[in-house]
């Protein structure tokens, strides 16, 4: 399992999967939700699928558009 995903990596991954520009600062500090950032439900499914495929995120974990990238990162570093 890959537990070394940094905020920068996650920001880049979100950008790649959804086309929404997210900074590592936003991942670390902002409370803005995926929804508010402009990541829709399909985009978020793409992010989650990518994390599951390549970053060892467990299949049981789900993320909703009203959660933030910061919450996602803590899910990853905490639970993975």
């Amino acid at each position: 399992m890959d537990t070394t995903l940094s905020p920068t990596d996650l920001a880049a991954l979100i950008n790649r999967c959804t086309g929404v520009a997210v900074t590592s600062d936003q991942v670390c500090f902002s409370q803005q939700s995926f929804d508010e950032l402009g990541v829709d439900s399909l985009g978020l499914m793409g992010v989650v699928a990518e994390l599951q495929r390549n970053h060892g995120m467990s299949r049981g974990v789900d993320v909703a558009p009203n959660q933030s990238p910061r919450e996602l990162l803590s899910l990853l570093t905490g639970k993975v």
């Binding site: 999967c17 959804t18 086309g19 929404v20 520009a21 990541v39 985009g43």
Partner: peptide, 8 residues
């Protein structure tokens, strides 16, 4: 085309 739309 906006970034998010371009990706999809």
């Amino acid at each position: 085309v906006d970034g998010p739309i371009a990706v999809q």
